[in-house]
Design a binder for these strands. Sequence first.
DNA 1: CCGGATCGATGCCGCTGAGGTATCGCTGCC
DNA 2: GGCAGCGATACCTCAGCGGCATCGATCCGG
Lengths: 282, 282
Amino acid sequence: METRELRYFIAIAEELHFGRAAQRLGITQPPLSRAISQLERRLGVTLLERSSRSVTLTEAGAVLLREGRAALDAVDAADRRTRRAALAGTGQADLVLVTKAGASGELLSKLLDAYAAEPGAATVDVILCGIAEQERLLRDGRADVALLHRPYDSTVGFDTEELCTEGQVALLPSGHFLTGRAKLRMADVAALPGLPMPRWPGRDGTYPDGPGPQVRDHTQLYQLIALGRTCTVLPESCRVSLRPDITAVPVLDAPPVTTVIAWPPHSRSRALAGLVRAATRL
Amino acid sequence: METRELRYFIAIAEELHFGRAAQRLGITQPPLSRAISQLERRLGVTLLERSSRSVTLTEAGAVLLREGRAALDAVDAADRRTRRAALAGTGQADLVLVTKAGASGELLSKLLDAYAAEPGAATVDVILCGIAEQERLLRDGRADVALLHRPYDSTVGFDTEELCTEGQVALLPSGHFLTGRAKLRMADVAALPGLPMPRWPGRDGTYPDGPGPQVRDHTQLYQLIALGRTCTVLPESCRVSLRPDITAVPVLDAPPVTTVIAWPPHSRSRALAGLVRAATRL
DNA sequence: CCGGATCGATGCCGCTGAGGTATCGCTGCC
DNA sequence: GGCAGCGATACCTCAGCGGCATCGATCCGG
């Protein structure tokens, strides 16, 4: 199976329309029709049900869509990582690290400092993004390593080392009556009248239903907390960069958050191994 | 990058010889030379250092070898799983499960029974093999799901659910003086004079150095234990199928072994989801 | 120091197959 | 029933893949 065929099939499987898929691929419709039926012939499998008015995926087609995406990501990763490997020492970044904006800022800077101090350390680029993108960046080779936070982030499919574990704190508007308490329980925070927990977008970009305000990043979140519209529970390391109009109170029974360094299991380059070593020594 | 180019490059990177690589690929040498230099031109990267008497990999070439193998495995997996998906309901196996021979026999049969009793259960094939092959089979799509044993097996790169945890027992020849004890410690077993621990092959197929006998499977192992040539520590579930000339004694401070069900993270088909559900309900 | 052997690169040719244009056949809709 | 939308097919062109012959560089034995 050639990657061209995979790309074609995935385009059709996503569009469910030969014409539009062809347009997206920058070719015309007939070669696309032929490529797909040839792929079906070679696999000995019907991938699409065509009814001259609509195209639908068969069971096997759905499998190939899932598996093919993963395979194409792997091929793209090979391409990108090879290109980047060739630039080593030219001032380009040898490693690309992704993490969530607003999380583990202190740990990250300590890690980068510690690694940079090592002899022969590679240069490290940092990308800040949402969790949904992190996985994708690691899988398709635009990034090499990530800082993730269990149990919030899934570490499925990656090799990991634990870096540190911390408790969680509730963030409340300063002056809120609960800020007088030295410690809280989840039940105290969950049912606060007038301060519903915020809703974060899922990995498909849509928001779950519920009473809380929609938030996309920590700036929005902090603003809404300061305004007295929401409250939240975050790892206690967020305290070092907290605005004065927000107060943090430890939540005893919140699950502890473990920061881990994660990378695709097969890609253990020398530079990556050095970074991981520096991280575990912190 | 096309899979053909990847296959060509990997062949050369492994052989480090254009002629032999071409032979292995079933083509002649000139097209291979051209394909590689074209790949290098397209990537903008030198992959091989040719000195007209020898071929060596560059840094970037080594990266592409690693990443390319993973990518090709992913493409092969897409191919195989698509083919198998199309055979659903034709009496072919819908799921292929791998595990080590001689481990968790009881758990496995309970799992298969429980799943088979579910409405709409798919047919499940079982492959027994060594740990080195398990990973590969899962990665290139010849298998869909595995039973692994932490901490012995690495679960890196896979999604897992824990099934059960058990202690470990020492296996000694019946009549050995230690079999009179109700419990042991690792130190008791490690330093037994005349009963050195056996040596298992690593994932490259070679045996580590040491005094113990080389073993390749449990039959060999049991034979050597019964002969009084070695002893070992295994999960206690091995007791149900133990020969009478071998005696098991609990080892209190041996690390507990957790049996997990593992699968590639992106491939969560309905059948697989059903099997995992049945497993967690055991 | 030279002739032969080895090995990768290059020039040239034939043919497969990928992509384009035009058109057909089917289907749902007004 | 006419028309529009959509995928399949027929036919053509040409890029590019693979094979053959050969070149140029390097190593080696004598």
